[in-house]
Nucleic acid binder design. Structure first.
Length: 912
RNA sequence: GCCGGAGUGGCGGAACUGGCAGACGCGCUGGAUUCAAAAUCCAGUCUACGCAAGUAGGUGUGGGUUCAACUCCCUCCUCCGGCACCA
């Protein structure tokens, strides 16, 4: 690119960008963000203004952003929640709150361990390196936290209290060990909680999950299912989406438990059903292959081999195959019968792949006439079908039915319940079950207990010892922490926890009897770490207890919690659970940890997929694209992408085939990330922050546009120019025009705009955080300021109004673009920083409009506009409207039937 | 299948509690500036017809309520997310 340097020097905005500094224009000072930004970052750091004040009487505000996993590098998509949180925090500080805005690191977890295996670097080193890099990134964004409260979950000072929490749960019977089928990820070589399995695959590595029988540690979250569900109603500050996700996840269903008896034995088979009204239609019963009774029936009987073979085969199927609704139903007759407690009928007992052990009771009653799965199963294995509910206006016949009837109707073939509406019979039948002690009304939840054992190294050791004499023994509290040994061989594992290979760790003595004992070698799920960290921020260095209840009760529930909605059924449900447990043990005084939950939408960007190479391409490796992005912005946006891209036929630079342009979540693997480090170098952190907030409503998904970033930069440049242009003029001006001063109309109008903007931005800060509209309001204000040609003409009061307007712009923008506003504020002669300045209040008088424009409609169609004094009486307005010549023309002499007046807005004249 | 959310110019998106649809930004067009370009500044930019004033249409589809509907109700379509052989 010949002459780039000289062009850069000579040119305006663009040159400034290229030079990484800014530009000279007409004014004397340049917008040198590269100098300004570090200057203010240092100043804030030195001032300690973001430290919470423990002894202050000010109202408290706890602004919390979800702490990240220290993965190494943040991209601009990650920035959204931190920037949003920082804007809110800065606003609250200016509003005079005692602010708590802490940050920490969710530092245990698999990636560190995988990196260790791949790159031969210790997980701790890997983690610490990443933390220091990410901390620098936060600082370069101008995102401030009270770093004196920083915590990292991988430090013994923190995980000691994880172990304490586990022991607390253990003592109260909420942590228990159970042998049973668990989700096993063959690639991560560890078990996973139900929450971490997505569509039968590992959420982390997408390997298909296998089922294994293992003895594992669980937390009894199911004991809290009902409260976790019911209390969602209290969470007014949560998004509907997050609440619905949790509701679905908890999955409450009401029904009845009915006890069938295995013929010729004392064995009772409880069955859960949501349709007790169909109990008279039961023609068979199905047990999950894992059901203990299946193995018992197989026993040593003549069908043992056949049964066990079937069970093994089904269990070998992956979770995905087995639980897909359209996979084949397969079953096996167990050569046993059960007795229906209400009819005393004898029906066949089967086992089938479609019954699962971990829902309900692991047994399903087969009602083929009224359940589609049972219907398909019965047809396949030629089992009888019995109709017990008839829909109005038609007669079901088992011989001719082609599908189950699952709707409402009248009971038939149901003994004394025959003739009742089924909805009514449901209650009656449940009553009868209860009276005969063969069943009861129950509620089942889909939520499963939380499996917390992980066969991995980089996590909190579970503080349990297995003694040959005493059995399972909790490590006494005074022996905590059980330290994670620094040197484990986490490379050679073969499904075992790496800790199992550390002799010095495993071999210990029983805390109770002193006999030889072995330590538990599994570590905890890292979601345990994050289920209470927000309590630890109040006393991060406390070494006598996990958290200071008194302080915690003062500061929590958290006023606003910002993070991604993807945590709704994991972290957020666990955190609510643990909080409720702590409440029950009277360690905290609140039942819900987060008053407001704000879920930011993710940021996506166009990616380039080459189908020939079967890989993603960087923009620069696509011919015809980089140019399109720089010169014709439309080419990179929205649906326009496809059209324009096709017209330009972007080609893969390596193979020449056409490239498919997609829109996807920013991700390293898709090669569509934008690095904040690069962006900050080119345009500055304020530009990135402004664009990130301006890109769209913060709770919605947004598309990153390289062109839009330039628009944001251009605006900051305009702000800089506007303020510096008037600097000399306002230096000695009053802060605002004196009350009652006689001002020209233009100045009065400007002041109105100033105060309306203050009102608008403040409302957004207190309301829904839609800063995209706040920013557009400030943009309008800046345009208004520029429109007035001479402020001197309005005398000292005019200059005061100008100063007032410029300062409003600076203060209102400061939560969004803190560096440039601090600099301009200082240039205006202020000694106190913006952060230490009070947020502006709007003037109720200045906001008032003396005249308003009224829309005039005839039969709902806009016909005219008139400007009136806002104090004008309704009758007067009516007369004015009817006298309006445009209205008269449309009316053509007809008499209005009605005239509707909406004060300050419009008048609608209704005619025949 | 069940439960959420969304659908508005060339693009991202505004629109209070039902009251002038398209704020603001991007892009585009024209002008100023410049030897020229970039940058910057000013103006225009929903569609159709019209020189214009204007007229008509317009917020996924079809209907309804209302003086008045992007907004409320019903039908359908599309997209995104969650749950799901869940008994």
């Amino acid at each position: 690119m010949p002459g780039a340097a000289s062009r850069a020097r000579a040119s305006g905005l663009r040159g400034g960008i290229v030079a990484g500094r800014s530009l000279t224009h007409m004014s004397e000072t340049k917008y040198e963000f590269a100098k300004i930004e570090p200057k203010w970052q240092d100043a804030w750091e030195r001032s300690g203004i973001f430290r919470m004040e423990p002894d202050s009487d000010k109202p408290r505000h706890y602004c919390l952003t979800m702490f990240p996993y220290p993965s190494g590098t943040l991209h601009v998509g990650h920035g959204r929640n931190y920037i949003l949180g920082d804007a809110v925090a800065r606003y609250k500080l200016m509003k005079g709150y005692n602010l708590l805005a802490p940050m920490g690191w969710d530092a245990f977890g698999l990636p560190a361990e995988n990196a260790a295996i791949r790159e031969d670097v210790h997980p701790r080193t890997f983690t610490e390196t990443n933390i220091s890099h990410m901390k620098k990134q936060f600082q370069s964004w101008g995102v401030l936290y009270d770093w004196s409260r920083e915590l990292a979950t991988c430090n013994p000072e923190y995980y000691k209290w994880n172990q304490w929490l586990f022991l607390l749960l253990f003592k109260k019977g909420l942590a228990y060990r159970k042998h049973g089928p668990v989700n096993w990820c063959p690639s991560c070589e560890t078990v996973l909680a139900n929450e971490q399995v997505v569509e039968g695959k590992c959420e982390r590595c997408e390997a298909e999950i296998e089922q294994k029988d293992l003895e594992q540690w669980y937390l009894k979250i199911t004991d809290y299912a009902e409260r976790l569900l019911d209390d969602l109603d209290q969470l007014e500050g949560w998004s509907e989406q997050a609440k619905t996700l949790q509701e679905n996840w908890i999955g409450r269903s009401e029904g009845s438990e009915i006890q069938f008896v295995l013929e010729g034995t004392e064995d009772v088979v409880p069955v859960f059903t949501t349709r007790p009204d169909t109990v008279y239609g039961v023609t068979f019963l199905v047990l999950a292959p894992e059901h203990p009774l299946v193995a018992k029936i197989a026993g040593e009987g003549e069908h043992k081999d056949e049964i066990m073979e079937f069970v093994e085969r089904v269990r070998a199927e992956s979770r995905l195959e087995r639980t897909s609704p359209d996979s084949q139903k397969e079953g096996l007759f167990l050569h046993a019968h059960v007795i229906n407690p209400l009819t005393s009928e004898r029906v066949q007992l089967w086992t089938a792949n479609y019954a699962v052990m971990d829902y309900g009771t692991g047994a399903v009653m087969g009602v083929p006439a009224h359940d589609q799965r049972d219907y398909l199963f019965a047809r396949k294995y030629k089992l009888p079908i019995k109709v017990v509910i008839q829909p109005a206006g038609q007669t079901l016949d088992p011989k001719t039915m082609i599908q189950a009837y699952e709707g409402q109707g009248m009971q038939v073939n149901s003994n004394e319940f025959t003739g009742l509406p089924n909805v009514f019979a449901m209650m009656k039948i449940t009553q009868a079950l209860e009276e005969n002690e063969v069943g009861k009304a129950t509620v089942h939840y889909r939520l499963r207990d939380w499996l917390i054992s992980r066969q991995r190294y980089w996590g909190t050791p579970i503080p349990i010892v297995y003694c040959e004499k005493c059995g399972v023994v909790p490590v006494p509290e005074h022996q905590l922490p059980v330290l994670l040994p620094p040197n484990a061989d986490f490379k050679q594992r073969g499904g075992q926890s790496p800790l199992a290979g550390v002799e010095s760790f495993v071999n210990t003595s029983c805390p109770t009897c002193g006999h030889k004992a072995r330590r538990e070698t599994d570590t905890m799920d890292t979601f345990v770490d994050s289920s209470w960290y927000f309590l630890r921020y109040l006393s991060p260095k406390e070494d006598k207890k996990a958290f200071d209840s008194e302080e915690v009760n003062k500061w929590l529930p958290v006023d606003i919690y910002i993070g991604g909605v993807e945590h709704a059924t994991k972290h957020l449900i666990y955190a609510r659970f643990i909080t409720k447990v702590l409440y029950d043990f009277m360690l905290v005084e609140f039942e819900e940890p987060f008053k407001i939950l704000f879920n930011q939408g993710l940021i996506g960007r166009s990616s380039n997929w080459c189908d020939t190479c079967r890989s993603y391409k960087w923009d620069r490796d696509v011919k015809g694209l980089v140019q399109a992005k720089e010169e014709g912005g439309a080419a990179t946006e929205g649906k326009g992408v496809a059209a324009v891209a096709q017209a330009e036929e972007p080609e893969c630079a390596s193979c020449g085939s056409p490239v498919e342009i997609r829109f996807e979540k920013m991700s390293k693997s898709k090669l569509n990330v934008v690095s904040p480090d690069e962006l900050i170098k080119q345009y500055g952190a304020d530009t990135e922050r402004l664009y990130t907030l301006f890109v769209g409503p913060p709770d919605k998904e947004a598309e990153w546009s390289d062109r839009g970033v330039i628009g944001a930069h251009r605006f900051l440049y305009r702000v800089w120019e506007t303020v510096t242009e008037h600097l000399e003029r306002v230096k000695d001006a009053a802060e605002r025009p004196a009350a009652g001063a006689d001002l020209p109309d233009a100045i009065v109008d400007l002041r109105r705009k100033v105060h309306q903007t203050i009102q608008k931005v403040t409302a957004d800060m207190e309301g829904d955080y839609k800063f995209n509209t706040s920013i557009s309001a400030v943009m309008e204000l800046v345009s208004e300021i520029k429109k007035i040609e001479s402020y001197e003409a309005a005398g000292p009061a005019g200059l005061a109004a100008l100063r007032e307007a410029l300062e409003a712009v600076i203060l209102l923008l400061s939560p969004f673009t803190p560096h440039v506003t601090e600099e301009l504020w200082e240039m205006l002669g202020h000694n106190e920083s913006v952060l230490g300045t009070a947020w502006p209040e709007f003037d109720k008088e200045a906001v008032k409009e003396p005249t308003v424009e009224i829309a005039v409609q005839v039969n709902g169609k806009l016909r005219s506009r008139i400007t009136i004094q806002s104090t004008l009486e309704e009758d007067e307005l009516r007369k004015l409207v009817l006298a309006d010549e445009k209205v008269a023309k449309v009316l053509e002499g007809k008499t209005p039937k009605d005239v509707i007046v909406v004060p300050r807005r419009l008048v609608n004249v209704v005619v025949e």
